[in-house]
Design a protein around this nucleic acid. Structure first.
Lengths: 231, 231
DNA sequence: ATTACTAGTAGACGAGTAA
DNA sequence: TTTACTCGTCTACTAGTAA
């Protein structure tokens, strides 16, 4: 996002424009942004054009609200600051073991993905994933992880079905090397999918409801690795 | 801070320029900022001029590092995002009761302050403050609070000594109304000073080392109140 | 290679003003 | 009152190039 948009959008967010329409004249916004009424009016038009804002142009006062797209952009910036001030190159996520819907496990254990894992993560996963429901207080970290570069597994076609790109991040659970996998079109929920060389439930003797810490490695990838973010 | 500075500084921080000198050419920085080598070079000169950066201009490659002032500016922006995404109008700080150095208590219980409290917070504090050492994980919230508008008590002179402005924020401890007070030139530590109508230690039967939750009210002040931030 | 000057240009801004 | 047009100015950019 252009920095001039980010600046204006942030101020609008601080004025409460994320969840509600706020009544604000272009003069008032101009004052907040330290610019003229004319420029603030233009900025609003540009933000509307970029679909970062929606407007209800009433007779007397306009009312504006930040769109979902606008909120996403602000979150990206927020996550950059979190990377600067909160995170080192290791992030610990606390969660509980759960039984997945089977869906993700089937998806990720397709042979073409598995072959790529072997090349990029130096292990061939055991066929099956371990699902960890991330604790509420750590869910913000998930977004940060998704915005970081990871190991990208290319998508493919099989039986007429499309399997999209998947990003893997090296991790450790109870000191065992593993990886968390994030499909490109992630359903954006709070359940991690872990793959590992071993059958994790058996190896670690863990069951549904057990608390686990997953340490995700976000240190910079070697330059020859393809770099990509999920979001 | 000018938005163009904030944008560049943030990228430099993401490249690791907060704790270390990083070797980066103006071309590389230009690529990161999506601008020309010439503009990036100029931007670096401007940031140096504003004392947001320091530089070690070696023979081959320059090495730059963000100054304390630069980090402060970035933190301000980070705190804006925290206000957008984390905080509602109530912030809970967890901490432990400690015995203050007496210094703050003497300072804040001066009569001219007390008189202003009565007008602005609708209670006259008991003469003495309760000190709460904020838990490590909540210290970031302190900065956010200090950046929010509060009830400003004007400073005064007495016996040749200057007493500066003090900002008060309404709060509650164990469901009792109180306020936290922040001197203008705060020693910026992690100890809250609470004032209350009652003698809090006696009323709540609490002692040094006890854990307490302090709920700070950050909801917008009524317009007739003077508005000011500590930082 | 670098960094950073000068010069020319495009775009952002505010004043004036219409609707 | 509003919002937002046109237009002149001035800033911020890049290209070329020196050191």
């Amino acid at each position: 996002m252009d920095e001039k948009f980010s600046f204006a959008l942030r101020k609008i967010a601080l004025l409460g424009g994320i969840n509600n329409y706020i009544a604000i004249s272009s003069r008032e916004l101009g004052d907040a942004l330290e610019m003229s009424q004319q420029s603030a009016s233009k900025r609003i038009l540009e933000l509307l054009d970029e679909k970062y804002l929606v407007r209800d142009l009433g007779a007397r006062r306009q009312r504006i609200k930040i769109t979902e797209k606008g909120v996403e952009e602000l979150k990206k910036e927020y996550n950059e600051y979190r990377r600067i001030f909160e995170l080192t190159d290791r992030v610990t996520l606390r969660g509980k073991i759960v039984t997945g819907m089977g869906q993700g496990g089937y998806y990720i254990t397709q042979k073409p993905y598995m072959d790529q894992f072997q090349g990029k993560l130096e292990f061939r996963p055991y066929e099956g994933t371990l699902n960890v429901k991330v604790a509420k207080e750590d869910r913000g970290k998930l977004e940060v992880i998704r915005s970081m570069p990871g190991h990208v597994m290319d998508g493919f076609e099989k039986d007429g079905r499309t399997f999209g790109k998947v990003t893997a991040y090296k991790a450790r659970i109870h000191n065992i090397d593993c990886a968390i996998v994030v499909p490109e079109r992630s359903h954006y929920d709070d359940v991690l999918e872990l793959v590992c060389k071993y059958h994790l439930r058996r190896t670690l003797s863990i069951n549904d409801g057990d608390d686990v810490d997953v340490v995700v490695d976000l240190s910079p990838l070697s330059p020859e690795d393809k770099i990509s973010c999920v979001s």
